[in-house]
Simulated scan of single mutants.
Amino acid sequence: MKPSMINFVKSFVNFTPEEIEAAHCLFEERTIKKGEYFIKAGEYNAAIGFINKGLTRSFFVQNNQETTFQISFENQFVTSMTCYVLNQPSNDYIQAIEDTDLCVISKETLENLCNQYHNWDKFGRLTYQQVALEQEIRLRSFISETAQERYERISKEQPALINRVPQLYLSNFLGITPQSLSRLRRNIRG
């Protein structure tokens, strides 16, 4: 575990030094180069990666069209929920948009850690709740907001997405075409 991950987990739970030390050697440090994959559709990988540095996108392909449904950056976790929860091959891809440094732990190792240490179990529950809340907010935004409202909210709440994510992926994440995103940006500046 790198210092950024240790600081992140401690912001959720008051871990003892023993609990941090027990987990420290269980996380493998991994670098994924821009364009490479953490997981591809059809593969089974129930590991969870914590992003120390970098940016990833999660997407699926349907009718030869990519749909980006998640963009993750520093201090966020990435995983295929199909693999992790259902123990099935992934339906999705997780690809690095930038060179990305991760701390990775397998599902089995993480579950053993959570069974041994109450605070790791508590951390898992709290972060899962956070992810579920973020997904609910995103779903609600697609139901109740226009593309411009989604863009304005993201630019206010997560300016890193606007500044770091290529227009093709950002427009896809917003549910619009790249051309619509360009028009939207011109109208907002205008």
Rank of each mutant, 00 (worst) to 15 (best):
G49L: 04
E157Q: 14
E136L: 15
I97E: 08
K34T: 13
I188A: 03
Q116S: 15
T79F: 11
A96C: 05
M1Q: 09
D99W: 02
I6T: 12
F123C: 04
T109H: 10
Y93I: 05
F59P: 00
E134Q: 14
M81Q: 12
N14I: 07
F73Q: 06
N52M: 02
E152H: 05
D99C: 06
C103K: 05
Q135V: 11
S180F: 09
N119H: 15
T146G: 11
S155D: 03
E19Y: 03
S180P: 07
L102K: 01
E98L: 07
Q116E: 15
M81S: 14
N14A: 15
Q65F: 08
K40D: 07
T109W: 01
T146H: 08
N115G: 08
L126T: 07
Q65N: 10
N45M: 03
L184H: 02
T56V: 13
V131Y: 11
G35W: 04
P89I: 00
H118T: 13
L174F: 03
F142K: 01
T177K: 08
V104W: 05
N115T: 03
V131S: 08
N119I: 01
H118Q: 14
L181C: 08
N87T: 06
R138T: 10
T31I: 14
Q65I: 15
I97V: 15
V131I: 15
I6F: 01
N163C: 06
Y37S: 07
A147Q: 06
F142Q: 06
N75Y: 02
Q148G: 03
G42K: 00
S11M: 02
T100A: 05
F59W: 07
I51G: 00
S144A: 15
N112L: 11
L133T: 15
F173P: 04
F38N: 01
L139N: 13
N52S: 12
K53Y: 11
R140H: 12
F60H: 14
L26P: 01
V9Y: 04
E21T: 12
Y117V: 01
L184G: 07
F123M: 03
F27G: 05
R138M: 08
E21Y: 10
I143C: 07
Y44F: 11
V9Q: 02
K2F: 10
F15N: 03
H118K: 13
E19G: 00
I48S: 12
E108H: 10
L170G: 02
Q167F: 09
I51S: 00
Q88F: 00
E145Y: 14
L161I: 12
P3N: 14
D121A: 15
E145H: 12
E29Y: 09
K122W: 05
V61K: 13
L55A: 07
S182G: 08
Q116P: 01
E152I: 11
L174G: 02
N91W: 04
I188C: 06
Y93H: 08
Q158N: 13
E98P: 06
